[in-house]
């Protein structure tokens, strides 16, 4: 009798474990659905940007404003951070705390570099008198690129909190799930940047 009870208890436990895995997978899927909604959000901003791109109202055009090497530098920083972010996830899956923290740290530094470059660019434009109130084109430019920047900021905050969490508690089921979500989020931001790089900057340069 006692034997049977222990067996059924252990079945219940392993069932619970499977339920937890399934819940984790559901959470990851839910997060993916959220990312898809964010894609549509960016798509609306892209459409608005393209529609307003030529409405400079006598203000500067994209080609006059943007410095292409600078933009390439930003792009490289973000692309590399997307790669190191993947390496962080791989290390986390192997439960290697130090390695995970190293790659996450590197991702954070690269992300922060990207954000600083972007903010410096905004600041430079605004100081020249080309703020978002200047024209429809500039409103759309600041809003599209700024929304991406806001996402990057959230990602950086999240990364910092996550790193602290891993440092304190190690890599558990819960933290691994969150690292996965964060990793998806960060890769997603790089995917959005491909289109900002192409549509805002490269197309902008061609319009000179």
């Amino acid at each position: 009798m006692g034997d049977l009870a222990t067996t059924s208890l252990s079945i219940a436990k392993s069932n619970r474990k499977i339920e937890q895995i399934e819940n984790d997978n559901t959470t990851l899927f839910g997060f993916w659905v959220y990312l898809m909604t964010d894609c549509v959000l960016f798509a609306s901003l892209f459409a608005t940007f393209v529609v307003l791109r030529n409405n400079t109202f006598g203000g500067p055009t994209g080609a006059q404003l943007f410095s292409m090497p600078y933009v390439l530098l930003e792009t490289m920083a973000l692309l590399t951070s997307s790669f190191t972010n993947g390496l962080a996830l791989l290390s986390a899956q192997k439960r290697k705390v130090k390695q995970t923290l190293f790659w996450m740290g590197l991702t954070f530094v690269l992300g922060l570099t990207f954000l600083s470059l972007e903010l410096a660019e905004f600041h430079k434009f605004a100081r020249m008198g080309d703020s978002w109130t200047r024209s429809g084109f500039l409103s759309a430019y600041y809003t599209l690129v700024g929304t991406h920047g806001a996402h990057i900021t959230i990602g950086l905050l999240w990364m910092a909190v996550m790193a602290f969490y891993i440092f304190k508690r190690g890599i558990t089921r819960v933290s691994l799930k969150r690292i996965r979500m964060m990793s998806m989020f960060w890769h997603f931001l790089d995917v959005v940047w491909i289109f900002i790089f192409t549509i805002v900057y490269l197309f902008g340069a061609l319009h000179a």
């Binding site: 307003l52 409405n55 400079t56 109130t133 024209s135 429809g136 084109f137 809003t143």
Partner: peptide, 8 residues
């Protein structure tokens, strides 16, 4: 100036 009638 997304939807204003001036400034593009």
């Amino acid at each position: 100036h997304f939807f204003t009638s001036s400034y593009g």
